[in-house]
């Protein structure tokens, strides 16, 4: 187990370097000079521009810049945004909000998705199954930003159940609707995935054996069926947590949640290189760690899988 984790962690290094390099190259080879943009409409003083470019290391070749960035990163330094604020500071403001939002959405998706999936998988072909299937199809078809506006229009403007935009980004009550919108698509996927695997495993030999042994229904469904059906669902959930944090761009924009998505979107629009690279780097790390955790969870759920 320990050796497996060590090997996986080592394998992460080239992927991590590759992904950050890719983002770095894309961000910094963009046309348009972020330093000149700092001056707005006014003509920039060439000497000041040159000094600032030197200060941010923008006068060096791209690969040298990347190397400097990477060595800074290893010491926990995410660099400075062009407005002079440390990127680590910016992220310390934004990440707690988005982590709340994403975990909220994730919780809804896990609890409701698996529950609905189990229900429909066990009652396959019944009315409730058909109803939930159609509903998931509708949810999958509606793009997130449309879903967000629907929620904002009906719940916020028309019925006045919620404030149309979030006033306090750390307030869990206000984050509820954005979290539902953010998690809706994944919720539908989790439901469908669970339904399929449950329906499939219900016909498995071990389920018949469990029934023949006279095990109570709760144990057959709760232990035998659940444990075997959750493996593909966990795979999906693992990659999804990172996706939720990255996908918050749209939801946070609609509901004015001051999280990573909003910060990232603004940074992309204003060519704020250091901020974009910093945030994406953290998102990539979340994704890599989540996929490692998923692989380790396999061994917990399925004793046939052993990591040497």
């Amino acid at each position: 187990m320990g050796r497996y984790v060590a090997r996986r962690l080592l394998q992460m290094i080239p992927v991590f370097i590759g992904t950050t390099l890719l983002i770095f190259l894309m961000v910094y080879s963009l046309p348009g000079d972020p330093i000149a943009a700092l001056f707005g409409d006014k003509a920039a003083d060439p000497a000041t521009v040159a000094r600032l470019r030197h200060e941010y290391g923008l006068d060096q070749p791209l690969l040298v810049q990347y190397w400097n960035y990477l060595t800074g990163l290893l010491q926990g330094d995410f660099g400075q945004s062009f407005t002079g604020r440390p990127v680590a500071d910016l992220m310390a403001d934004a990440f707690p909000v988005t982590i709340r939002l994403a975990l909220f959405a994730f919780g809804i998706e896990v609890v409701l998705g698996i529950a609905l999936g189990m229900l429909t998988g066990l009652k396959r072909g019944k009315f409730i199954d058909q109803l939930v299937l159609v509903l998931t199809l509708v949810v999958i078809s509606i793009p997130v930003f449309v879903l967000g506006f629907l929620a904002q229009f009906f719940l916020g403007f028309k019925w006045g159940v919620i404030t149309p935009t979030v006033q306090d980004s750390m307030n869990l009550g206000q984050l509820a609707v954005p979290a539902v919108v953010l998690g809706a698509l994944s919720l539908a996927y989790v439901t469908r995935l669970t339904r399929t695997t449950v329906a499939e495993n219900l016909r498995a030999d071990y389920m018949r054996t469990a029934l023949a042994k006279g095990l109570p229904t709760r144990r057959r469904i709760g232990v035998h069926l659940m444990r075997n059906s959750l493996i593909p669902v966990i795979t999906f959930l693992g990659t999804d947590l990172g996706m939720l944090m990255g996908g918050a761009i749209v939801t946070e924009g609609i509901f004015n949640v001051q999280g990573v998505g909003n910060t990232l979107y603004r940074a992309i629009q204003t060519s704020e290189g250091p901020t974009v690279v910093g945030i994406v780097t953290v998102l990539v790390l979340v994704y890599l760690v989540a996929s490692l955790v998923v692989d380790l969870l396999y061994a917990v759920l399925d004793p046939r899988i052993r990591y040497a």
């Binding site: 992927v15 991590f16 590759g18 992904t19 890719l22 983002i23 894309m26 961000v27 990172g242 996706m243 990255g246 996908g247 761009i249 749209v250 990232l264 979107y265 992309i268 974009v276 994406v280 998102l283 990539v284 994704y287 890599l288």
Partner: peptide, 15 residues
């Protein structure tokens, strides 16, 4: 693997 680390929407936005 490297490209998989970047979500579709995010990568397309930056590019």
């Amino acid at each position: 693997d490297i490209f998989f680390g970047i979500p579709l929407l995010l990568g397309a936005l930056v590019l």
